[in-house]
Design a protein around this nucleic acid. Structure first.
Lengths: 298, 298
DNA sequence: CGCGGTGATACCCGCCGGGTATGACAGGGC
DNA sequence: GCCCTGTCATACCCGGCGGGTATCACCGCG
């Protein structure tokens, strides 16, 4: 009628991502014919054309693009429902997830802040157990959406806070991270423009909101890989001030004068009602200074 | 395995809301035994106890409360996927919902702003058709979540922007709306405290984020009802300045000195990629003054 | 012109979602 | 104490449909 089963969404998303019925069916662990039929039924029920079948491949229509986007969100929501329910079920007790709270943190970022936060929260009366889930660059948003995490530390402008509740915690400047021997490493300060076009030293690219900007530099997936590439003199990176904590001897950090500040936020799914989460957020905001910088949404 | 069908979510949400298998089954248009079995299967698959069956009724466990909340969100997301896909499918064309855009507006609020916005947007080159969906107080959030609307005008602090992208448009003060003959109606200004305890004239209550605060005053569901009750001398209300536009002769408006300002935002589901929506938001922000007041989330 | 690779069709089967009938059990009225 | 009522659970059956296999229709290509 006017409701979609998650099975149908799963099927469509698979096809829309693969743009190939056979591969999609394989990914779903099923045969191709039933998948074709399911998609046809879907299109008939929605009375909408989702895919354009040219011989040789498949393309998405406008409606298909919308369903891909919205369907992913719906699947994430369903997965989140399962995960969060399971998590609270383990520990039991009413009033939301009381026993365990999964905190997603970019690996090796916000290290000092994280330590202080965990210590301060553990000292609170009846605090929940915090499981720290280290994640790749820019992965926090996905983890929050699909329920693998309950709360995350995010860094604007790298992460997007869209769709989440959040509180700003701290702000910091940015530095250029260079090979120690590089001529620019001796400078007191640098500008973004200077760093951007160092001859023979392309700027490393990491994803902003999940997508890599085009450019000549290498695509960075984790901080170790980045450190190595810099140490090898293959790239230069722009990173928040706190990155100094993981620099090697072969690295040099030079403050940037005109880079936007990096703001660390604690973020969680909108409308979360967990007591444990509320306590953690209260601890975090109280710790990093009173309501100097809070987000208006609330 | 580790995925929930929307059917199962629908069933559980019905039971969790009714707290009664028989009534829930009736609401779902099915018999009670299969519903009982479905919920049992659900609990077994999640390996979590969701309901506490005392003889004489049913109660939610902590996990059950979480699943109710998350399940509603997932069902909304699935419904939104259907609705938005259908809407764009009608008009066809790639690049997101191009043909029609549904704008949810509190009936009779922001009237002047709305008119200007619609006029300005219609004047844009290749603008989409805007369908205005008038809605009850505080209903916009639900409409955006389940896809009945694509974009909404919201008013903090009445509405919550949590979970949405938004841009602030205008801010205005608030006034007390009194029966014209009332002694306080002659005052130049009033304070919230003065309005709150006028003898024999309890403050009208309308929902903040969907829930009514407790109090002696009448619960307001729409603006006409409110206007009538005020005119009859049964209640007094606090309303934004623009409410003056719908006042009757029997009403009087007195500015409040210490009420928080009401900010009108244009809000839309996070991560929306519609070109038409982007155009509307651009028009709205450009119209109400340059980037004086924008929300940081991007 | 045959071959490979695409998605669609035809057909069959077994599972499971749903219905009906009934049971188990507790509370309340008399 | 009794039975009656209202609740959810169990037992059993059936039909639909989701999924599999085999095959077709079509096109591009060497």
């Amino acid at each position: 009628m006017d409701t979609l089963e998650t099975r149908e969404l799963r099927y469509f998303v698979a096809v829309a991502e693969e743009l190939h019925f056979g591969r999609a069916a394989e990914r779903l662990g099923m045969a191709q014919p039933p998948l074709s039929r399911a998609i046809q039924q879907l299109e008939r029920r929605l009375a909408v054309c989702l895919l354009e079948r040219n011989r040789r491949g498949v393309r998405l229509t406008g409606a298909g693009e919308v369903l891909l986007q919205e369907g992913r969100a719906a699947l994430d929501a369903a997965a989140a429902a399962v995960r969060r329910t399971r998590r609270t079920g383990d520990a039991g007790g009413p009033g939301g997830p009381r026993g365990r709270l999964v905190l997603a943190v970019k690996a090796a970022a916000s290290h000092e802040l994280l330590r202080r936060l965990l210590d301060a929260y553990a000292a609170e009366p009846d605090s929940a157990e915090i499981e720290v889930l280290p994640c790749g660059i820019c992965e926090q948003e996905e983890l929050l959406r699909d329920g693998r995490a309950d709360v995350a530390l995010m860094h604007t402008p790298w992460n997007s806070l869209a769709g989440f509740d959040s509180e700003a915690l701290t702000a910091e400047g940015q530095v250029a991270v260079l090979p120690a021997g590089h001529p620019l490493a001796a400078r007191e300060t640098l500008s973004l423009a200077e760093v951007r076009d160092v001859p023979g030293l392309p700027l490393a690219r990491w994803p902003t909101r999940g997508v890599y900007a085009p450019g000549p530099g290498p695509e960075i997936h984790n901080q170790t890989q980045l450190a190595q590439l810099i140490a090898l003199g293959r790239t230069v990176a722009v990173a928040p001030d706190s990155a100094r904590s993981w620099l090697w001897a072969e690295h040099a950090a030079v403050p940037l004068t005109d880079a936007p500040p990096v703001v660390t936020h604690i973020a969680w799914p909108a409308h979360s009602r967990s007591l444990a989460l509320a306590g953690l957020v209260r601890t975090a905001t109280a710790m990093t200074g009173p309501p100097a910088s809070t987000v208006p949404a609330g």
